[in-house]
């Protein structure tokens, strides 16, 4: 579930409010958005993918809250890690050589 909006990173653009398919966030006048309906989070990670500031963290647990903190996430370098792995960063992501990708075709 979505657990963290980093106050240091978030610029209040409210893109997450818009892109969340299950309407989990709510905008706040003159502030950064809040996680208003955490139970509705379907753990699809789309808010993280669309966040231009790498300010969001979705824990992989769909049914329980882990209480992970901003400090832990910064220490483990997890903010923005999914965006990076799908290549939504400058330079994209390197594709392994074709003979390596072919390894997936034989099973």
């Amino acid at each position: 579930m979505i657990e963290v909006i980093s106050e240091d990173r978030c610029t209040g653009c409210n893109i997450c409010v818009n892109v969340c398919p299950t309407n989990v966030f709510a905008p706040v006048a003159d502030g950064i958005p809040v996680i208003a309906r955490q139970d509705d989070c379907q753990t699809c990670f789309m808010c993280e993918v669309y966040c231009p500031d790498d300010a969001l963290y979705v824990a992989p647990h769909a049914t329980e809250i882990t209480h992970v903190t901003v400090a832990e996430l910064e220490a483990r370098d997890l903010f923005g890690s999914y965006r990076k792995s799908i290549g939504w960063i400058r330079g994209g992501r390197p594709r392994p050589a074709p003979e390596i990708m072919q390894r997936l075709e034989h099973r």
Binding site: F45, A59, P60, L78, S81, Y82, S85, I86, R93, R95, P96, I100, M101, Q102, R103, L104
Partner: peptide, 18 residues
């Protein structure tokens, strides 16, 4: 194969890595 998998479906590894 692991290298190919990580490229083909990054979201498979997302929860496991986390």
């Amino acid at each position: 194969t692991e290298q190919a998998m990580r490229y083909a479906q990054p979201n498979f590894f997302l929860p496991l890595d986390r």
